[in-house]
Structure formats: C-alpha cells, structure tokens
Design a protein around this nucleic acid. Structure first.
Length: 121
DNA sequence: ACCTTGACGGTTC
DNA sequence: GGAACCGCCAAGG
C-alpha cells in the first residue's frame, strides 16, 4: 500500500466537501469556514486540486460543487476543467448560465444539526 | 529560511 | 456586472 502522508487540512476540506448535497453548490470560503479554517478559501482551492481520483474514505469528493463567492466557476471559461465542471453541475440540475450560477437558488445552506453531526474531525 | 503560487474574498470604482 | 487592487496564508520549491 502506498502511504503518502496526507495533509490534515486537506482531509478536513475533502470531508467537508463531501457534505454538499447533490444539486447544490458551496463557495470556497464557505467550505473553509465549515472545515474550521476561516479565511483560508485559497487553501480549499489547492486541496481540491489534489483530490484523489479514487475518492476519499470510501466515497468520491464532489469537487465540482464548489464555486467562488461570485457564483462563478473558477476555471477559465472554455478550458477542459471548466467544461467538465459545468457538465457535472448540469447533470444534477444545477442551472449554469455562461459561467454563472445563481447562488440565491443553488447555494447549500446547511442547518446546524447537519454540521454538528459531521464535525468529528 | 526565503520566495512564489494559488480552482479565493471583500471593497471600491 | 466587471475589473483592478489588496489582504490572506499554507504549501511546495
């Protein structure tokens, strides 16, 4: 078995991203806050860039459900990654207009119990 | 130990 | 809405 040491911050981030329900999206900063890393939105981006393809803790990490605070996909429009993310979102009924998603309609709003239940870092 | 890099965010114009 | 600017801070080189 390869035992590549995994950065604990990345683990927390991946785990938090797994909580986003299908059909919803969350912002980098939002994930950072929920993961107990306030102010580290950029770290979330880095962590998502290193998501293991295999998955994490038995399930895949829905990296495509994370967008920026302006409601836009952060990849450059037209890039492969951009198209892939857009496709994934549309596949689960998230409406993407150009590069934009209406946070008002699709942003995940976790309730308290949901968070407490999952916070066993 | 220093420097650069980021899938960012808030503010302002 | 969008672009410029600055603040942020762990990771990796």
């Amino acid at each position: 078995m390869s035992n590549t040491p995994i950065n604990p911050h990345y683990r927390q981030i991946w785990q938090t991203v797994q909580l986003i329900p299908q059909g919803k999206v969350a912002c980098y900063g939002q994930i950072a806050d929920l993961a107990g890393l306030p102010g580290r939105a950029r770290l979330v981006g880095k962590a998502l860039g290193k998501v293991p393809d295999i998955g994490f803790k038995g399930q895949t990490v829905p990296w495509f459900r994370v967008i920026n605070s302006q409601g836009k996909i952060s990849f450059e429009q037209g890039s492969d990654n951009f198209e892939k993310q857009k496709q994934h979102l549309q596949d689960e009924q998230v409406v993407v207009i150009g590069t934009r998603i209406k946070l008002k309609d699709f942003q995940w709003q976790p309730d308290l119990s949901e968070i407490l239940f999952a916070l066993e870092f």
